[in-house]
Design a protein around this nucleic acid. Structure first.
Lengths: 244, 244
DNA sequence: ATATCAATAGTCCGATCCGGAGTAAATGGC
DNA sequence: GCCATTTACTCCGGATCGGACTATTGATAT
């Protein structure tokens, strides 16, 4: 019986069950204040995935009752923990990806008016603000020592760093861009083009290729070699993805 | 005939057809060097969407022949341009979203080994590097004045700023985090916790709420008011999304 | 005691979207 | 004249979305 491999989403759920037991409802709530910022899934998935994981023996379900209402609590099995560890040891299938509708609106800005653009920029600002505020709240929890998984603080700190950086990026980009759009009203086309050219040059400027420490490079190479052998070998080329 | 509203992906395609005519094949290639960084879609979508848009009268198709091979070129119609403008005037459905498998791996890092973590970090670094290199190439095209849509440089500059910032974020986060993981080998648990606590505080520190200029705030409010009235009214609450 | 509301705990389903495999003609280099 | 690459699609199963729907429980107000 050669079951299809688990999806990334399935492994992410499995990871949550490695932390503690959850009912799908609890897990959905938890994911709204965490994962949703870097790996969002629909609520319906949180209900449909655990039964599938249970069917493979990676989770076990138990029914509980409150009055006349039942709820299903899932726990991870040793096989589940093994599957999670195996996934973590394999190289990531893909890097971080953005899905940014407001940025697409900026791209097609020339077909709308400047207020449409300001609106898109404001929505990026709002997202950045939300993310920073959440991160700030979580930061306070860790400082006070009452965050849910204190023992994982080493790892959570890296996570927090990434998310906060991204939140700040969104807020600051929005502020810069809104100012730029306002400036268009005071500039003639030649000045606008010149300013745009300068902005393009300035964005790229701070990029001084920073390399990883040797340890990380070595780990990645080992992972890639191990990962390249286990799954069914590709046909001809190293198969660049089909995403456009 | 009340057709279901177009998806965001459909509008993004429509936007491309506002730029010029494309065959799906050409468009797929174009999207691989642009949109894929902030609004990735599968190649199959690039073939299936244009016929649907054509059925609504937003595009027109024409067949061309090269030898005995046919290709389908799509052009936008006036109705298509109107639909695009209407979409741009409506408030964005959602803010920028991340989908970052490697970051999820960091979250569940405690269930794997440190080399798994280094691998995940390296994949973020590689993504950042790819994005920065692409941005750098595009920057050179604009400075040389031979980029494809020079007339949109005002808008493209904002785009470029966002993407470059994100690329730099990924690279720098990866370098910081790899160094942190290496440091764990020289630290005892107490020191690790202390360093994690400091990192959490330090990430949040640079966040000094920056507000948008009044013009952007006003534009967003107008958009929200207009947008809240047009689509079919929601039942009870302002309907928070079903994403977890 | 009762109406009301928010939170709890799900189910269901159509439409969308992914991603990979497969086909086949045109082109360029040797 | 052959081969690899690029062009130009087509197809399909399975994953995913997201919104509507049901119904119970517990707290708050009347």
């Amino acid at each position: 019986m050669d079951l299809p491999p688990l999806t990334v989403a399935a492994h992410v759920m499995l990871g949550h069950f490695a932390l503690r037991d959850w009912t799908p409802y609890e897990l959905a709530r938890e994911m709204r204040r965490n994962i949703c910022f870097f790996f969002p899934r629909a609520q319906s998935q949180v209900y449909s995935e655990p039964p599938r994981l249970a069917a493979r023996g990676l989770l076990v379900a138990r029914e509980e009752v409150t009055g006349r209402r039942r709820r299903t609590v899932y726990s991870i099995t040793p096989e589940g923990r093994a599957a999670l560890a195996a996934w973590l040891a394999a190289p990531p299938a893909k890097g971080p990806e953005l899905e940014a509708e407001p940025i697409a609106r900026v791209m097609f800005g020339p077909f709308g008016c400047d207020d449409d653009l300001r609106q898109a920029v404001a929505s990026v600002h709002a997202s950045g603000r939300r993310l920073c505020e959440t991160a700030h709240r979580i930061c306070a929890e860790y400082q006070a020592g009452r965050a849910p998984f204190q023992t994982h603080i080493r790892h959570r700190a890296l996570l927090h760093d990434f998310l906060t950086s991204f939140g700040i990026l969104m807020e600051e980009w929005a502020v810069r861009s809104a100012a730029r759009i306002d400036a268009w009203e005071r500039e003639n086309p030649g000045e606008q083009t010149e300013a745009a050219r300068r902005l393009i040059a300035a964005s790229t400027a701070p990029w001084r290729r920073a390399d990883l420490p040797a340890s990380a490079v070595a780990a990645a190479r080992r992972g890639a070699e191990a990962g390249a052998l286990s799954p069914s070998r590709r046909r001809r080329p190293p198969a660049r993805g089909t995403r456009t």
